[in-house]
Computed example of a mutant assay.
Amino acid sequence: MTDFMNYLVLGLTRGSMYALIALGYTLVYGVLQLINFAHSEVFMSGAFGSFIVIHAIVGNGQSTDSWAVPLLIVLGIVSGGVTAATVAWTLERVAYRPLRKRGAPKLAFLISAIGASFFLSQLAGKLFHRFQNQPFPAFYNEDAVAFHVFGARVRVIQLVIVGAAIVMMLFLDRLVTKTKLGRGIRAVSEDAPTAALMGIDIDRTISRTFVIGGALGGAAGFLFGLTLGFGNQMGFLPGVKAFAAAVLGGIGNIRGAMIGGLLLGIVENMVPLVGIDTKWTDVVAFVVLVLVLMFRPTGILGERLGRAA
């Protein structure tokens, strides 16, 4: 039971980050029926943006006062979100909008997305290579803020990550289902030409969708860097897993992306519990995805954004 609870806590922590990234995929797909393969680099940009801001304020973080820790966490989430939202907005304006204006086929969007992904990845490698594989500033003491629940060791930072992710996911769910902007997003997702006839600005709605998805991905980038540090594959591999989570829950479905992300994170971290070597973690996660899709091809919830409400 103790081992199970430990792995469950780790799974919920990582799954919360997957869910936030997956929301960016599912929002864009719900509106444009487009898989934004550059979203993993949008997530990565949020991680680097928040790292630069936090590092500029506290350096290595060793002498940070305890009262400043909550403020730094909020600042990291905001700076990561703003950085990634800016990149996502630019991406939509440069890589996708010109194609949409010309009525380009879906294949052109796909090629543009892959090209943008490679460009952003290479650009980040050139600009931030000195930060790769560098730990995030240690501005909090992990051992001093840990307690036990049913024998499992729970760190306060894990509660912060899960709590922040839940708050942001609930906020997005309410925004899409209850606000004017959310009704516009759902209308464009359901029938863009008719939505335009009803007075909805299609370009503005799509741009805001990219910004919202990018901001959530950037916030996840900060949380990812805070707990797992930076690495050469921090954009691609978590991004692919988050895309798998979006498909698992039902691509284009916001609540499905949340469920898919949490489920994928839990499954990944339960691998050692059943006696499988941790090097097979990625394989097991995608095997679970395939098995679910064999019995439910549309994912767990399987509704598109426009029909989700």
Rank of each mutant, 00 (worst) to 15 (best):
M5N: 12
N6W: 00
N6Y: 01
Y7W: 10
V9A: 12
V9G: 01
V9T: 07
L10Q: 12
G15A: 04
G15M: 09
S16D: 07
Y18M: 04
L20D: 06
L23K: 04
G24E: 08
Y25I: 11
Y29D: 09
L34Q: 12
A38T: 15
V42W: 06
M44R: 07
S45H: 08
A47F: 02
G49E: 13
G49Y: 10
V53G: 06
V53D: 03
H55D: 07
H55F: 10
H55V: 03
H55T: 06
I57Q: 00
G59T: 07
N60D: 15
G61A: 11
Q62R: 11
T64N: 10
I73G: 05
G76D: 13
T86Q: 09
W89M: 13
W89I: 14
R93M: 13
V94H: 03
A95H: 08
L99P: 06
R100H: 07
G103M: 07
A104Q: 06
P105L: 09
K106R: 14
L107D: 08
I114E: 09
A116I: 15
A116P: 02
S117G: 13
L123G: 13
Q132T: 15
Q132P: 00
Q132V: 15
P135C: 02
Y140G: 01
N141P: 02
N141T: 08
F147C: 00
H148I: 14
V156E: 12
I157Q: 10
I166P: 01
M169H: 09
L170G: 09
F171S: 10
L172E: 05
L175A: 10
K180P: 04
L181I: 15
L181W: 15
R186P: 14
V188C: 09
S189F: 05
A192S: 14
P193K: 05
A195M: 10
L197W: 00
L197E: 13
D201M: 11
I202N: 05
R204C: 02
T205C: 05
S207Q: 13
I212D: 04
G214T: 09
G214L: 04
G214Y: 01
G218F: 00
A220S: 11
F222D: 01
F224H: 11
T227I: 13
T227N: 13
G229M: 11
F230R: 10
F230A: 06
K241C: 02
F243A: 01
A244W: 07
I251C: 08
G252K: 09
N253L: 00
N253Y: 00
N253S: 15
I266N: 08
P272V: 01
L273D: 11
I276P: 03
I276D: 12
D277V: 12
W280D: 07
D282K: 05
V283G: 14
A285F: 04
F286R: 01
F286L: 15
V287K: 06
V288M: 05
V292W: 05
L293A: 08
I300K: 03
R304W: 00
G306D: 03
R307W: 08
A309T: 13
